[in-house]
Design a protein around this nucleic acid. Sequence first.
DNA 1: TTTTGTATTTTTGAATGCAAAATTTGGAAT
DNA 2: ATTCCAAATTTTGCATTCAAAAATACAAAA
Lengths: 221, 221
Amino acid sequence: MLHEEVVGRIRDILLDGEIPPGARIPERELCERLEISRTPLREALKVLAAEGLVQLLPHRGSRAAKLTDKDMRDLFEVCQGLEALAGELACERITDREIAEIAAAHAAMVQHYREGDLIQYYRGNRTIHEGIVNAAGNPVLTGLYASVTARIRRARYVTPMTPQRWAFAVSEHEAILNALQRRDGAGLSHILRAHLRHKREEVLQAGFAEADGSEFTLKIA
Amino acid sequence: MLHEEVVGRIRDILLDGEIPPGARIPERELCERLEISRTPLREALKVLAAEGLVQLLPHRGSRAAKLTDKDMRDLFEVCQGLEALAGELACERITDREIAEIAAAHAAMVQHYREGDLIQYYRGNRTIHEGIVNAAGNPVLTGLYASVTARIRRARYVTPMTPQRWAFAVSEHEAILNALQRRDGAGLSHILRAHLRHKREEVLQAGFAEADGSEFTLKIA
DNA sequence: TTTTGTATTTTTGAATGCAAAATTTGGAAT
DNA sequence: ATTCCAAATTTTGCATTCAAAAATACAAAA
């Protein structure tokens, strides 16, 4: 198994919450599961620590990073900035073909909305945002965006989706597609910022306090 | 020596150009120099590869990453976006004390300009930009900014600094400080973007093509 | 001389081994 | 029963070792 694959596998395990935030990462166990020895595993953990998904405690092993409200706010803020930048650049560079692809993804997403399929809706949503970032044609940006959204991802699904919020999000997406089709960089950037700000407010309002995965929980009587 | 220290030491060696871009990274040698074995060294190299400073070639070791013009353009673009975001956030959050510190750094930098001390000028310049990013109060942003600027850094010093360019850069910095003191987020964001765009144009115009550090060079007659 | 095939050496990537540090366990004292 | 301390165990971090892959050296043939 290649190094990058090991990193990817462990990242997925963390993002799926299989090792919950704050929980210790069981080296021995992961080694057996991935059928590798400790050396490549530990290399991967250091990389993931640099990405912010893992927290290394000297002489005390590693834990799945636990995000505080502040962390989540910071991540959303940066994500907003990156998407706004991507929007501007995308409008300068996007091809008609790419616009058509995003429009198709948008139509599919709206269809999922109509059918009330939240999971598929989220998937389509992600495709659109990634499409815009890719259309910016900047691999550095793509990389940072991937890293930031990976850390956010878990939180995005904790917010209870109400009919009003959902309808509003879809309307924002209409505006996003519209700005993109007009290649209105400033406009798209503005809408994306607002869209992300709303999402952030929802997540934080829902009291995002990442579940503690430690083995014991203090209960104060 | 702690893991993070190893990463830092190697990062410095790369950023100083001691191992030139494109050159092979001599594992054995670095081990002796840092007085560590291959295991922690290789852990550090993987982290630096994730940062984009090192290129890993499966079964062929690692090289210091060589940046193309396109890479440099991409990095500047993202750096612009990050600084613009930092500027906006900083204006919302910066304290009077922090503004005073940046003003002092600005004054010192102008003094270095008057004295014609380019090295100290660059150092002061960096202090100011980092000060603004720090004032944004967003560690995620600070981290990404550090990673991006690290990769850019080498290129910033390759541009020949002409008197006109230098004077103009200083005037831009006057505007930056001014916007910050007025806490004019939109204005600061705009000026920072322009400032970075100018720097990027200089660097790319100067024909940034990173020197090849490989042992042999092809000369076509 | 140039090219091609083979043997040797070097280097890489990963498993194992080992000392130091931290955690847990068990028992004695309160 | 609870607290405290020392011994035992586990876990960590790094050095070493080992097999596989790549690079190199070298010799033979064209």
